[in-house]
């Protein structure tokens, strides 16, 4: 019964990673860049939710919506100000800029919100589910997290498959010039991708802080890096890959913490990444990209 409970917790943590990994993987797919500031958008989202709930006494759901709006705008602004001028620059320049944005957001948070640890109260008020005569307890946060992940995945798949904007995103990620020849506004499509990724980061952040309720300006970096690992694990650029990579990573982390060593759980996660990259460099669902001449 313990194993089952660990497994469910793993899936729940993995769901958070998967939602964050979506942001990495979509932005990578479309802009061919690793947005290392993505994790810090999560942290900003958490602070916005925290301040709205504890400071203003706003209903948790409304606080989450405010946080989504703020993060979406932040994502668009970061893309416009920091990344768009580098559209034709070398990948290294973009990568270093992303790391710079990450430090900027962390230090801005330090300045705005202070260095002290805030204790985040869960936005989920759902009671825990007790199964098998109380031998298995699943917290409300866990249930909501897994449900949110499923809803987001299905909605995103439908959006991409069924809407014009979604098809434009696929077209731009495959061939920007050809997409433009179809009349697709490439810059607007890239903005939209950042907007969606950042909005999802806000949701992931709130769910993460509901499960692990300490909030500092550095809260976003670890889940950010792990979600990046999950995206690479699943095959960067692939949306189903982000889901599979995220869930597997969450399960590995929780089981590693439970059965091997709680101190080594992070090391185990990253060791898995190294092994995956050695065996299958493109990740589980990744495809070999052939450069066309």
């Amino acid at each position: 019964m313990n194993f089952l409970s660990y497994l469910i917790n793993g899936i729940s943590l993995g769901s958070v990673y998967a939602i964050i990994a979506l942001g990495y993987t979509m932005v990578y797919g479309i802009a061919k860049m690793l947005n290392f500031a993505h994790g810090d958008v999560i942290m900003i989202g958490c602070y916005v939710t925290f301040l709205a709930m504890s400071g203003q006494g706003i209903h948790p759901l409304a606080a989450v919506i405010i946080s989504i709006v703020v993060c979406t705008l932040l994502g668009i602004a970061v893309e416009k100000i920091a990344y768009k001028p580098l559209r034709r620059a070398t990948p290294l320049a973009v990568l270093i800029t992303a790391i710079g944005v990450s430090y900027f957001l962390q230090n801005a948070a330090l300045l705005l919100f202070g260095a002290d640890t805030k204790s985040f109260s869960s936005v989920v008020t759902l009671p825990a589910l007790k199964l098998a005569d109380g031998a298995l307890t699943i917290s409300g946060t866990t249930i909501v997290t897994i449900a949110a992940c499923i809803v987001i995945m299905v909605a995103l798949m439908l959006f991409i498959k069924k809407t014009k904007a979604g098809q434009a995103m696929l077209a731009v990620s495959e061939d920007k010039d050809a997409a433009q020849l179809m009349g697709v506004n490439v810059n607007a499509t890239i903005s939209l991708t950042f907007a969606i990724g950042s909005g999802l980061a806000a949701i992931a952040g709130v769910l993460f802080c509901s499960a692990y309720p300490t909030l500092t300006p550095y809260t976003g970096s670890m889940p950010g890096i792990k979600a990046f690992t999950a995206a690479v694990f699943g095959g960067i650029g692939s949306i189903p890959g982000a889901l599979i990579g995220g869930i597997l990573l969450g399960i590995i982390e929780i089981l590693g913490r439970a059965y091997i060593s709680s101190q080594l759980s992070d090391a185990i996660v990253f060791a898995v990444l190294i092994v995956v990259l050695l065996v299958k460099p493109t990740g589980i669902l990744g495809k070999q990209i052939h450069e066309k001449v």
Binding site: K164, L170, A171, D175, M182
Partner: peptide, 21 residues
Amino acid sequence: PEGRRVFAELSVYENLKLGAY
């Protein structure tokens, strides 16, 4: 365009739909 530049990961129908974007 030169080299056709069809969207390889999309179906024929989806490619045509994008033409009418």
